[in-house]
Each structure stands twice: as C-alpha cells, then as structure tokens.
Simulated scan of single mutants.
Amino acid sequence: MTPLLIDFPVFDPVAIALGPLAIRWYALAYICGIVIGWLYARSLLKKERLWGGPAPISLPQLDDFILWATLGIILGGRSGYVLFYNLPHFIKDPLDIFQLWNGGMSFHGGFMGCVVAVIWFARRNGLPILSLGDVTTAVAPIGLLLGRIANFIKPELWGRAADPDLPWAMVFPTDPTQLPRHPSQLYEAGLEGIVLFIVLAIMIRFGALKRPGLILGSFIGLYGLSRIVSEFFREPDPQLGFLWRGMTMGMLLSVPMLIVGAILVARALRKPATHQATPPLQAHP
C-alpha cells in the first residue's frame, strides 16, 4: 500500500516584489522578527509592574540598541556558520562569505554576536547588562519562530527519514533522496519559538524581570534543551554528518548552553529581587 504523505506546499521563493526589488522569505523573517521583537520589548519596558518600578532601560535607549542587536545577529550568525559548519569551503572560496542571499546562518553564532552587542552597548550607556540581556532574550523566540518557518518555506534543514506511516511525513522537493522526512523545521518552530515564548512570558508575568539574569539564563538553558531534542529529528548538515558519539554540531554547541543557563538561573534566584517599588509609608496611630 502506498503511504499517505503530506504534499509539500509550493511557495514562491520571493515573498514581496516591488519592481526590481525582491525580498525573499528568509530576509522577511529577519525583518519581521526584529520589528515585532522591538515592539514587544517596548511594551515590556512600559509596564512598571513587571519590574517593580521604572524599567532600568529607557525607550530611547532600546531604540538605539536595535541597530546594535541587528548587527550582532547578522555578523555573528554568518561568522558562526563559517567557523562551525563549513570552514573548509570558505577557506577555499572566501568571497562566498559575503553571499548571504545563498543562506548559511548559525543561531549559536548569532547569539554570541548578540551577547557582544548587549555587553558593549550596556557598558557604553551605563545600563545593567543582565537586564538588557533579559529583554533581548524575552523577544528572541519571535525571531526563532519566523526563522524556522522561513527554513521550511525555502525548504532547507529538513528532518531525518521518517516512518512512511507517520501521518505528517513529507517529501521535500529539494531533497535528492525523495524520502519521507520529519518536518523538523516546524518542530523547531514549535519548541524554540512558540513553547519558549510562552514559558518566558509566563515567567515575566510572575515577576522574573525583577531578578536580573533569570530570563536570560532560562532562555539559554531552555533553548539548548529544545535544540538538542530537535536535533534528534533533524538531518545533520551533509558536510559535517554525525560527530562525537553520534551527536550533531547543533547538539555539541547547545550542551554548554545548558550549563551556562543553569548557572545564570541559580545566581538570579539566590539574589533578592531588585527594582522593587518603595512601599508606601504607613501612618502611625
């Protein structure tokens, strides 16, 4: 009996065409992720109850930081891909490093680039590094969700071969093997995007921003866990394959995140909540 597979939807690679200007889905995902994340971050800074008083970062400072964060994500993401995923190729053809339209971005590299941007901007402007990191990572799942959807639309970074009886297995048109596979991009969109955003939003609702570093550490640890789980369904990059003890590059880069995240969470919970509003004076009889 022929297995029932989901037909892969056909997408136009160009999301928006304005005359000679063509914006592809991957670029649109970055643009929308940054803009929506910026708007969400502004809404967090406006709500004093989430901080127990005025937020330690002003809206103009956040607006200025967006450019820094964008540069950190793009430069770090590309550098991470070059170093971690395809260094021999880029040593042979170094000009390919600048061909961003051909794809090739690393989350772990982009995250490190964003960390550098946070530290640099915070020190230049006298801002608390951990609080700026909290705001940045609180909005990060929005970009992750849109980025993974763009991976699916392209399509790229598909999953490992699946049981043909799996109801949602699909054949990706760019896959030369034409095997039914897991739509791992959607798994990652769900875990790294939707689930992670909901968890962090609930933590924020219950006062996590009053403990600098708690959201940052939670994001780092939970992303690392989500990525490791997702990698069990994702086909390894062909130029790398499986590495140490059958782990993939994504797994190896995510293991340190579990450790760093746990340390930041433990430190945040040990310290008393900060930025709390001064309680009103009590009248004495």
Rank of each mutant, 00 (worst) to 15 (best):
225 L>D: 10
229 V>W: 14
279 P>L: 08
267 R>Q: 15
191 L>G: 01
96 D>K: 13
34 I>F: 15
3 P>K: 12
132 L>H: 04
217 G>P: 13
82 V>M: 13
48 E>Q: 12
88 P>V: 06
142 I>M: 05
227 R>S: 06
148 R>L: 11
258 L>R: 03
266 A>N: 14
48 E>G: 06
273 A>F: 05
276 Q>A: 11
122 A>Y: 02
28 L>I: 06
92 K>M: 04
61 Q>I: 03
24 R>K: 10
129 I>R: 00
62 L>G: 01
193 G>S: 07
90 F>L: 14
246 G>T: 06
20 P>W: 10
156 E>D: 12
137 T>M: 15
161 A>V: 13
208 A>F: 05
219 F>P: 01
173 P>I: 02
215 I>F: 04
51 W>V: 08
133 G>Q: 08
177 T>V: 11
200 L>W: 08
172 F>T: 00
244 W>M: 09
88 P>I: 06
5 L>S: 13
263 I>E: 11
100 L>V: 12
171 V>D: 07
41 A>W: 11
39 L>G: 09
203 M>C: 10
198 I>D: 03
85 Y>P: 10
23 I>S: 04
232 F>E: 05
52 G>D: 05
65 F>M: 11
168 W>D: 02
139 V>S: 10
78 R>D: 03
238 P>I: 10
183 P>G: 03
180 P>I: 10
100 L>M: 12
53 G>P: 02
145 L>D: 00
108 H>Y: 03
49 R>Q: 13
278 T>R: 09
32 C>T: 15
196 L>S: 02
72 G>C: 06
231 E>R: 09
80 G>H: 06
89 H>P: 05
280 P>H: 09
11 F>Q: 07
263 I>Q: 10
192 E>V: 11
31 I>R: 03
184 S>H: 01
124 R>M: 04
175 D>F: 02
65 F>E: 04
54 P>C: 05
152 F>N: 01
272 P>K: 07
164 P>N: 09
241 G>H: 03
269 L>S: 10
110 G>P: 02
50 L>H: 14
281 L>R: 09
